[in-house]
Amino acid sequence: MRIALLDDSGLFRAALRLLLETVGQTVVGDVARGDDLLRLVERDRPDVAVLDICLTSARRDDDGLRVAGELAASRPDVGLLVLSTYDDISYTTRLLQIRSSGIGYLLKDRVEAPSALVDALHRVAVGQTAVDADIVARLVRHQRTSGALDSLSPREQEVLRLIAEGRSNVGIGEALSLSARTVEAHIASTFGKLQLTNSDQDNRRVLAALTWLQASGNATRH
């Protein structure tokens, strides 16, 4: 797989490049600025662009999100994987709204296990969605505490978690060792209980699941 890197920390960028090349990926280039990434992608046509969400250390803003947005508009065929230090759900949902496929949000902590990183890279490269398992797990745990998940069976809770991580039906089936039909049945009942609209086509169901996990239940905000 051909990968382009964007991160304003040179140290981390170099280490990530080393890791990716060690596990057999091709890094076409690593840059520190958003504009450089856009040029790099134009020139080298990578399969996936990996970028940090916060690019200027002086400001905490959505600079990475802006670059992601421009990239999604100009190169719909290039997968986007955001590597972030923010385990914050709002960045995730905002990123997922940029486009409906080939997009992912992972914590930088995943570099400790290359398999999760490579798995996410593959998924966004083929147009699927990837959301960091830790972020989803934290949301699920929180909702479990509040009792909002009481209506779901343990298996349905697992299904909801995997949907929120961006797994396809096949992926869920593999993860839980279930047949495709059983997975579909679980998804249907889970979404039915949570009154969510199911859609297997794109990341809309990921967003729906994440939004539900984030907003519903105990935290009422105005």
Partner: peptide
């Protein structure tokens, strides 16, 4: 960022 870089290097 430095610690995360070390983590990535250790993974490699």
């Amino acid at each position: 960022q430095s610690l995360l870089a070390v983590s990535a290097t250790l993974s490699a």
